[in-house]
Design a binder for these strands. Sequence first.
DNA 1: CTCTATCTTGAATGTACATTCAAGATATCG
DNA 2: CGATATCTTGAATGTACATTCAAGATAGAG
Lengths: 193, 193
Amino acid sequence: MRNAEFDREEVLRAAMKAFMHKGYANTSMQELKKATGLHPGSIYCAFENKRGLLLAALEQYRLDRATEFEQFFANSHLTLDNLKSYLTNVVVECISCDSAQACLLTKALNEIAEQDSEIQQVISDNLSVLQQALAEKFEQAKAEKSINADKDCDHLARYFLMGIYGLRTFAHTHPEAKVLEQLAEQLYHDVSQ
Amino acid sequence: MRNAEFDREEVLRAAMKAFMHKGYANTSMQELKKATGLHPGSIYCAFENKRGLLLAALEQYRLDRATEFEQFFANSHLTLDNLKSYLTNVVVECISCDSAQACLLTKALNEIAEQDSEIQQVISDNLSVLQQALAEKFEQAKAEKSINADKDCDHLARYFLMGIYGLRTFAHTHPEAKVLEQLAEQLYHDVSQ
DNA sequence: CTCTATCTTGAATGTACATTCAAGATATCG
DNA sequence: CGATATCTTGAATGTACATTCAAGATAGAG
């Protein structure tokens, strides 16, 4: 007889941002209340508890990232060039230094995955989806003759993803644009050559 | 008139292990008490507080890792081969899946660096030291003609370290030996070719 | 052996937190 | 324009935590 007043996606994006900024354990319900605009009771009603909010936020993150990913390839450029744009965008995010741009997946992976196998599984699945999507793009690039026919696209996707993880971590201590760009350049070279 | 009964290094290694396993915020003083064998009062007396214990543990970690690093090069092999051994060892640590082998630096960097600039600085300094040490080894490998004379050793060191960060994160979701070994193989190839 | 400075112990403290819940508000339906 | 199901509110609850502290233990000095 009455619908919830809040926008679920908006709330989840706010929660994401809070979790990315301060981590899971260090984000209190009071901060989540401020970030989402929802009172504790509403959060518990909608997401069961703080952990449920994280799980919902991880799912929203997956959806948002998948959409974003596809947009990089929704044009007529060579797939390999789009992969490069994707990588360049990672660097841009790292440089902007906005913690909101950190990767929720790797952050949560580091903080809690080891102690919560369900969350571990959710994150692993998320990352596998991204890896699979990358592998498909490399296959496409191979079909377009941009990369050598004897390359193993699954391996390329894993290596590319490993590089992105490394880049993100590296950026925490080395946020200088030039260095990150140079590293990305080499990574691109190593997967495309 | 009376000396402390505990062995400081032993206590710090136990604390490191606890922090690596559960993270900083999620490791309670009660767990630290169990892990170190020290009662709260003694911990506060020796390290001021929980944060002080982390700082001391980070310093011990740096010392231990520096010693370990040098041991990889304390032989008559080619420096480049020793770099490969070092990388192989990272993979072995990842595979062993013993959380005690995770990297305290990257773990702490992800969890708290953004909220505590002193800890951020300590970790950054630690990682810079490692990066510098790697750069020196690459210079040595260059002098031994193992790598091309026109290579930028600082860049190689950064790329190598980025790869190690990526490898460690990747291992969280992909602990299969074969995959990690293949990634390490490619990384080695890309820095030595 | 005695004295005292220092260390050890672990219960006590206050605080901050996640979670609950009952009262109040409001949209929708008849 | 009620009636009512559902949502919103935020103070109350209990718990778990980091930290403190005073009493007890013990090593070393004289």
